[in-house]
Design a protein around this nucleic acid. Structure first.
Length: 489
RNA sequence: CGGGGCGUAGCGCAGCCCGGUAGCGCACCACGUUCGGGACGUGGGGGCCGCAGGUUCAAAUCCUGUCGCCCCGACCA
């Protein structure tokens, strides 16, 4: 047993990196802070994209693509927005290289008249474009999504969770009324919740961001927060109600039915490859990655076992027929008939890669018309009849999906606490961490004090219909409702 | 950008204190025996010891600088 993965109890950050490495998802690139996504990781992203894209289309959205480069002046049009992104921009200043005695240098004469910012997000360039697309209420709503890469010059990076360049989707919608834009904002956070819970098997809490944590330029930011295995929270997706901020900044108006010229209302929303990080930290264990069946690039791997050529033929015939049958039933199956790796090696390999279900077939099984199926999530094996096997596999995959979600849900529940005093809050945050519901007076001042003293932040203000009022655990001032605190990634 | 640690084969590391021209495990290649949980034996390939200077007859080792990575802060999807 030559396992490289170390225990997450010893060093969670290292464990996380080891899981990624062993599963061959991604690695650091030679470019500071950037990531190479390997085929295993990209296949996962493609599956996530496919599901999300389908959900976007179903909710009436279309895809489009806007430029990578944003004229510097665009970024300064919305005051809060500039403030939020100014400190983390990559800026293109020149357009040419020339040979010199010191090697290749930037040609000073190629300096751009106006610098270009590599998009940290696309609100500005999109709103500058929407200005030309919108004249009448008949042009609304605009419901567009873009799959893209963005760049944010981060100080410290972590694979998937925070890299200088990352892949994401960003939706940008324009509406005639505030109500429609708000409805869109809420609809899309619900889409993200569905995706996180039903596909990633990652339970999330929906809420609203505090003013401090809100997206720069938004009136309100809704988010989904998920609790990771180390007790820290991950912001997994956001949906912003932008009000008329960008419409005003870019002068996007339309003439309404009543003849009046009005500014349009906006939303934007996004999720990124960070979701992959969230999935790893939600499900993986000390044996490596565990992928939810609905997103796993390979749902089932068949490992044939044989000793000699005669057995090889019988086993491969048997396994090949099984592969064909599963494929026909729409299961993503792979038959690994490579002869230069031994079965034991393959078992271990597919475990670190997180393949949800493994089927082993050997001469014994051929003879008895049986199969050994092994679940990655529970590490349990069972011998089943090779009859109606596709249905059995399908059911097992569904069960894995459910079990994974339930396990994560229970863990989140077990690590969600309600506290009334700041002393209890500090004790819990330092010991178990996790989600904590507590009363807060609603001021940024108190929020920052808590952050400063405990490293915990308000992850979100829950959207319950019937909040329970109380008094702020720090200041004793009145509080409308409990809010969700945690340390965060 | 502040504080700490580390750069030696694809990966993980030893050697450095006390200079003498590079080694271990895994991986890789060949052959044979193996094959129902990461096989074993024998043989083999692979290194500008992060980079640049300096000291020295001689530098992975000592000195200076520099770049990069990791962890902890500030910042953030």
């Amino acid at each position: 047993m030559a396992k490289n993965i170390i225990s997450k109890d010893k060093d969670y950050a290292q464990w996380y990196l080891d899981v990624i490495k062993e599963a061959k998802l991604a690695e650091h690139s030679p470019v500071r802070g950037c990531m190479v996504i390997r085929p295993n990781g990209y296949a996962l992203w493609e599956n996530m994209q496919a599901v999300l894209d389908g959900m976007f289309k179903e909710t009436g959205h279309q895809n489009a693509y806007f430029p990578l480069f944003i004229p510097k002046s665009f970024l300064s049009k919305e005051a809060q927005h500039v403030k939020g992104f100014a400190k983390e921009c990559a800026i293109v200043t020149h357009s040419r290289l020339i040979d010199s005695d010191d090697g290749v240098i930037v040609d000073p004469s190629s300096k751009l008249e106006e610098e270009l910012v590599v998009r940290p997000t696309s609100e500005t360039i999109i709103w500058d474009t929407y200005k030309n697309w919108i004249q009448s209420y008949r042009d609304l709503p605009i419901l567009i999504n873009q799959w893209a890469n963005v760049v944010r010059w981060e100080m410290r990076t972590r694979l998937f969770l925070r890299t200088m360049e990352f892949l994401w989707q960003e939706g940008h919608t324009a509406h005639a009324t505030a109500g429609e834009a708000l409805e869109e904002t809420e609809k899309m956070i619900e889409v993200y919740r569905t995706f996180a819970e039903d596909y990633m098997a990652m339970p999330v809490t929906i809420g609203k961001k505090s003013e401090e944590e809100r997206f720069p330029g938004a009136i309100d930011t809704l988010c989904i927060e998920a609790l990771m295995q180390d007790g820290k929270s991950l912001q997994a997706g956001t949906s912003h109600f932008l009000g008329q901020n960008f419409a005003k900044a870019f002068d996007v108006t339309f003439q309404d039915k009543d003849g009046e010229v009005k500014h349009v209302w906006a939303s934007s929303w996004g999720v990124s490859t960070r979701l992959i990080g969230g999935m790893i930290m939600t499900h993986a264990d000390d044996d490596g990655l565990i992928l939810p069946p609905k997103l796993a690039p390979t749902q089932v791997v068949i490992v044939p076992i044989w000793k000699n050529d005669e057995q090889l033929k019988a086993v491969l015939d048997y396994a090949g027929a099984l592969e064909k049958e599963l494929k026909e039933k729409g299961i993503r199956v792979k038959l690994d008939d490579r002869d230069f790796y031994k079965p034991g090696w393959k078992f271990a390999q597919y475990e670190v890669e997180g393949v949800p279900l493994r089927i082993a077939v050997g001469p014994r099984d051929v003879e008895n018309n049986k199969l050994e199926i092994a679940r990655r999530d529970t590490k349990t094996k069972s011998l089943v009849d090779n009859e109606n096997v596709a249905q059995v596999i399908k059911d097992t995959l569904d069960e894995i999906q459910t079990t994974m979600f339930e396990k994560a849900r229970k863990r989140t529940e077990d690590n969600t606490r309600t506290v009334n005093t700041y002393d209890d809050f500090k004790k819990i945050i330092n010991k178990e961490s996790g989600f904590i519901y507590a009363h807060w007076d609603g001021t940024t001042e108190t929020e920052l004090k808590i952050k400063d003293e405990t490293k915990a932040t308000i992850r979100c203000i829950p959207l319950d219909e019937n909040p329970e009022p109380g008094t702020c655990m720090v200041t004793g001032k009145p509080s409308e409702r409990r809010v969700l605190f945690a340390r965060a990634y």
